[in-house]
Amino acid sequence: MEFKELDPILHSQLRLAVISLLISVKEAEFTFIRDKTNATAGNLSVQINKLKEAGYIEVIKQFKDNYPQTICKITPEGVKAFEVYVKNLQSYLSAK
């Protein structure tokens, strides 16, 4: 049986955590993602940028009460990539 390679963008602990979180909600603030993943702001920021560059998430930067606010939401490409990742993971685990 042949296994499809797991998407390297998603097969990373923090990036997968972010995508799994965003798949369940409409949109989330950076601080919410940071609290739920227990990641440092610096590391999270780097991983969010990678997901953004891959086109998996949309990042909206705006101001709320004079403070900068970063909102993240998953894109249709991100949903598709996540579905493919889970499918490949399932076939890999069921063959184990």
């Binding site: 797991l6 602990q13 997968l16 799994s20 739920k36 993971l89 890999y92 685990l93």
Partner: peptide, 11 residues
């Protein structure tokens, strides 16, 4: 792969 699945479920 198991870790991945656990992480997805937990998030």
């Amino acid at each position: 792969g198991d870790d991945s699945l656990r992480l997805i479920q937990s998030m």
